Amino acid sequence: KTVHVDGVEYRFNNPEEADKFVKRLVKEKNGNVEVRGDTYHVE
């Protein structure tokens, strides 16, 4: 899984860790998540 945040790319081998990371980011930023294939885009 890959997570894109503000143009920075984070790669996770463990999908659960990627999910936790995304949830935390969305809370912090009050942002939205767009999923494209295996990539999460957080804005």
Results as ranks from 00 to 15, higher is better:
32 N>T: 14
32 N>S: 12
29 K>G: 13
41 H>N: 09
34 E>R: 06
10 Y>A: 00
15 P>Y: 09
25 L>S: 03
29 K>Q: 12
3 V>G: 01
17 E>F: 00
36 R>D: 11
38 D>G: 05
19 D>A: 11
24 R>W: 15
16 E>T: 05
34 E>T: 14
19 D>K: 09
22 V>H: 03
33 V>H: 03
22 V>I: 13
27 K>L: 11
2 T>H: 04
15 P>Q: 14
33 V>F: 10
11 R>Y: 14
32 N>L: 11
13 N>D: 13
21 F>C: 00
10 Y>W: 02
23 K>N: 11
18 A>Y: 10
14 N>W: 02
42 V>K: 06
24 R>K: 14
22 V>N: 06
2 T>F: 08
7 G>Q: 01
9 E>V: 13
24 R>M: 13
11 R>T: 12
2 T>V: 14
30 N>G: 14
23 K>I: 08
9 E>A: 07
16 E>F: 06
14 N>T: 14
14 N>P: 00
27 K>I: 10
8 V>Q: 07
25 L>P: 03
13 N>V: 07
30 N>H: 10
43 E>P: 06
41 H>D: 10
15 P>L: 10
2 T>R: 04
26 V>G: 04
39 T>A: 12
5 V>W: 11
10 Y>F: 06
22 V>C: 11
42 V>L: 06
16 E>K: 04
23 K>T: 08
18 A>L: 09
30 N>F: 09
2 T>S: 07
36 R>G: 08
30 N>S: 09
3 V>A: 00
12 F>T: 00
8 V>M: 06
38 D>A: 02
38 D>I: 03
22 V>T: 04
26 V>K: 07
24 R>E: 14
42 V>C: 00
42 V>W: 09
22 V>D: 06
42 V>R: 05
3 V>M: 02
23 K>C: 15
41 H>G: 06
3 V>H: 01
26 V>M: 12
33 V>L: 10
33 V>T: 04
20 K>R: 12
27 K>R: 07
5 V>L: 05
37 G>F: 12
18 A>S: 01
34 E>F: 13
21 F>L: 02
14 N>E: 03
11 R>P: 02
39 T>E: 12
32 N>H: 13
15 P>V: 10
32 N>F: 12
6 D>L: 02
43 E>I: 15
16 E>V: 04
38 D>M: 02
23 K>Y: 03
41 H>A: 08
37 G>L: 09
28 E>G: 06
28 E>L: 08
41 H>Y: 15
1 K>Q: 08
31 G>F: 14
40 Y>Q: 09
33 V>S: 06
19 D>W: 15
8 V>E: 03
43 E>S: 14
16 E>H: 05
4 H>W: 15
6 D>E: 03
41 H>R: 05
37 G>P: 07
6 D>I: 01
24 R>L: 14
16 E>R: 03
28 E>I: 06
2 T>W: 05
40 Y>A: 09
1 K>D: 02
10 Y>L: 02
11 R>H: 14
22 V>Y: 08
12 F>K: 01
39 T>S: 13
10 Y>T: 01
36 R>E: 09
5 V>D: 01
12 F>W: 01
5 V>S: 01
42 V>G: 10
32 N>E: 06
28 E>N: 07
40 Y>W: 11
17 E>N: 01
25 L>C: 02
29 K>E: 09
29 K>L: 15
38 D>Q: 05
34 E>P: 04
36 R>P: 07
30 N>D: 10
9 E>R: 05
15 P>F: 09
43 E>F: 15
43 E>K: 12
14 N>G: 02
16 E>G: 04
30 N>C: 15
6 D>R: 01
29 K>H: 14
36 R>Y: 10
33 V>C: 07
28 E>M: 06
39 T>G: 12
41 H>I: 14
38 D>C: 08
25 L>H: 05
2 T>M: 05
36 R>N: 10
12 F>C: 04
13 N>T: 11
31 G>S: 09
14 N>Y: 02
43 E>R: 09
42 V>Y: 07
11 R>L: 06
9 E>C: 15
17 E>W: 01
21 F>W: 03
42 V>E: 08
4 H>M: 15
10 Y>V: 03
25 L>A: 05
18 A>R: 04
25 L>G: 02
14 N>A: 02
31 G>E: 07
10 Y>S: 00
37 G>M: 06
36 R>M: 10
26 V>P: 04
18 A>P: 01
30 N>A: 07
27 K>M: 11
32 N>I: 14
2 T>P: 02
34 E>A: 08
17 E>D: 11
19 D>G: 02
43 E>A: 12
